[in-house]
Amino acid sequence: MTTPILDVHQLRTWYPVRRGLLGRGAAWLRAVDDVTFTVMRGETLAIVGESGCGKSTLGRTILRFVEPTEGNVWLDGHRITEMSRVELRRLRRHMQVVFQDPASSLSPRMRVRDIIAEPLVNFGLAGDRAAVDARVADLLCQVGLPRSAAERYPHEFSGGQRQRIAIARALAPEPDLIICDEAVSALDTSSKAQIVNLLSDLQQRLGLALLFISHDLAVVEHIADRVAVMYLGKIVEIGERAALFEQPAHPYTRALLSAVLDPSPARRHARIMLRGEVPSPIDPPSGCRFRTRCPYAFDRCAAEEPELRERPNGQSAACHLDALPALS
């Protein structure tokens, strides 16, 4: 069996928070709370959920922008949790990131050439100036930008084009894995489709693995091989895209899918209106964390936390119900 490119095991990222005027009674914000999954080479795993579910903290913990409280992460068989900063630096070229807002992740004072060349220089992958220029031109071509873009500054480009620059920079050190943190969420409709297609093309051509963090299920359906749904720091359902989209096994997945609005009046569907909003991750509900908003909650849900269990369709869901009630 092949080694997964990314192996995340029982990962916890808790932040200490102060309570009360004197900071007594310290509590924990459980942003990521016991998360386990793998990503194979060339695969796209989407992490979906609403704000506060911990999906971005999960990405940042894997990148070690934030230190995990517990658990482990292996990148291509190397345990990157507990690695020293120096060791991590060397390995980081294999794992790159594209953020939501290219305007704030690209330095406004650097030319596009230098932005894309930076990782080449940092990881010692650069040859002489001519070699760097050739590589930058090649990367620009791969992301669909003209060679002349190299001499310009980020502000001269539209949002979609800036995201292409960010992708070119991420590709520069030839990574095995790119973490896309809401990478298309801030884009307009027409550039969103372009960037999703670009990521799919690059992935197929270069054999990249993607960890695609997003709140947008309609986009995820176009790009993901597998999908993990997070709620209040935990994965509540994980499985193959088709199984999870066609027959969700967790009530939260079903509600998320039903909340996606469709422009065609003919394609309106029954909507499951969830009560209220996501509770605080500082004080999550007992038992199942979703029970306070779940239309199907019963006594056992408050008393006992459901484990992820495999379902007949192959996906795993953390719900006490074996099957969801039929939609009326």
């Binding site: 309609a218 989209f245 065609s264």
Partner: peptide, 11 residues
């Protein structure tokens, strides 16, 4: 715009 709008395929 309508064609580029991501939407669920509904199975």
């Amino acid at each position: 715009l309508l064609e580029a709008t991501p939407r669920l395929r509904g199975g």
